[in-house]
């Protein structure tokens, strides 16, 4: 059985507890990166390898890589972290798709919420401002939580 096609637990029974493990096809992914742009690509490579091991379709892998690149770049650029501070990435395959959390101890997001998908003015040929638009477009749900000096951004992607 492909991990991607996890059956739901039988009615009346709780889902089995997932124990963190490593290796091919693990349903959990844990990774971390230094808060620098050059650390983003290696983390994304590990993440897409993990997605492939869990039989996530190639097109969805690409969506996840695009959205995660933007989300991680944002933390590096705006989080105010020192380069040797770490950003953590946790991901798991769920019944519905893939859920990924980005955890950092940088500055709180402005207004304490996920920025809107501000559409750049295309007529002006913008050179930026695409990041949140891509993240909003490619995720099914997007949540931001701040507590104890920690930002948690959760991105969920459908399986198909």
């Amino acid at each position: 059985m492909k991990a991607w096609q996890m059956p739901s637990p039988a009615p009346g029974r709780s889902a089995p507890v997932l124990v963190a493990s490593v290796g091919n096809g693990s349903l959990l992914f844990t990774g971390q990166l230094r808060a620098e742009f050059c650390a983003v690509a290696p983390l994304l490579r590990k993440l897409t390898d993990w997605l492939a091991q869990n039989a996530v379709p190639a097109e969805r892998q690409a969506d996840i890589e695009i959205a995660m690149a933007e989300a991680l770049n944002n933390v590096v650029e705006h989080g105010g972290l020192r380069p040797r501070q770490k950003i953590e990435v946790l991901a798991r395959v769920t019944g519905a798709g893939v859920r990924i959390a980005i955890i950092d101890r940088g500055r709180a997001y402005p207004k304490g919420t996920v920025p809107e998908s501000a559409s750049p003015n295309f007529a002006e040929l913008p050179e930026g401002g695409f990041g949140w638009m891509l993240i909003h477009t490619l995720t099914q749900t997007l949540r931001y939580h701040r507590s104890a000096g920690t930002n948690i951004l959760t991105l969920e992607f459908d399986r198909q």
């Binding site: 690509a41 890589e65 695009i66 690149a69 933007e70 770049n73 040929l125 913008p126 050179e127 930026g128 695409f130 990041g131 891509l134």
Partner: peptide, 16 residues
């Protein structure tokens, strides 16, 4: 294989 929004912005900047 991959272009992020910063790379895209750089391509637009070169065009301009």
């Amino acid at each position: 294989d991959f272009v992020d929004s910063s790379g895209l912005g750089a391509i637009v900047a070169v065009m301009k």
